[in-house]
Simulated scan of single mutants.
Amino acid sequence: MLRMVRSRPRDAHGDYPDSLGGRIRFYRRRAGLTQTALARAANINQGYLSSIEKGERVPRVSTLHALAVALDVPESVLVGASDAHDAPQPLDTRELPLFGAIPNGPPAESQEQLEMFPVLRHLWRPDRYCLRCEFDSMEPTLKPGDLILVEYRPNVNPEWVQGRICACLVDGRPTLKRVSVELRDGRPLVILRGDNPAVPPQLVDERSEFSVQGVAVCLVSRAL
């Protein structure tokens, strides 16, 4: 009787990486992603990802999870606890409310909740919720149908979340964009930008009613 033996994947030199950074680089290349593309998908800085791959920095638990989701690889494989990509992994999860639109107010008090969605226990907090992306303004970082984890941070100063993807309300209308603040004529101007180059930036002047309702933490689910 023949016995099937699962072999480890190999890199370009025929060896399986023995470091966390090396494995992240290995699976990134296997997925055909550049550092910039993976960094955007995991909502981290490209320079930070580069230092992780070089072994100069150790990613936080939430960052490791975001990278694993973006690469479609179990976290245990990235950290070297398992060789088999397809091996079943026990998951310790807790549920968070899932919304199809940015809730106006505390998630626990909103009536717009669609359902509950399980997230890994270390990602769970009472002030967090999951949000289903419905538009293409954040492509290629976020695609329609993606589920992201959002931390409820009402009325946070936009300058404190520079460059972050945020759930915002502009004149009562919800939008998911990167927040930046620039000085124009000596006054701060909030600019909301999508990652999709076809979507023009949205300028928020002092006449608009604007608030940041939450900050994106990481991608938690992507439909294949």
Rank of each mutant, 00 (worst) to 15 (best):
V5W: 05
S7K: 11
R8G: 10
H13P: 01
P17E: 13
P17Q: 07
R23L: 03
Y27Q: 07
R29K: 14
G32E: 13
T36F: 03
A37R: 15
A39H: 10
N43R: 12
Y48S: 05
Y48E: 02
S51T: 08
L67N: 09
V69C: 03
E75N: 03
S76P: 03
V77M: 04
S82A: 14
A87S: 13
P107K: 05
S110K: 08
S110V: 08
S110D: 11
M116Y: 13
M116W: 14
L120K: 09
P126G: 11
R132Y: 04
F135T: 15
M138G: 04
N157Q: 06
E159H: 08
V161N: 06
V161A: 09
Q162I: 02
Q162K: 10
Q162E: 13
A167M: 02
C168K: 03
D171K: 03
P174S: 12
R178Y: 02
V179I: 11
S180N: 03
E182Q: 13
R184H: 07
G194C: 10
P197S: 13
Q202C: 10
Q202E: 15
E206H: 15
E206W: 15
R207I: 08
R207S: 15
R207H: 15
R207A: 14
F210P: 09
V220D: 03
S221W: 14
R222V: 11
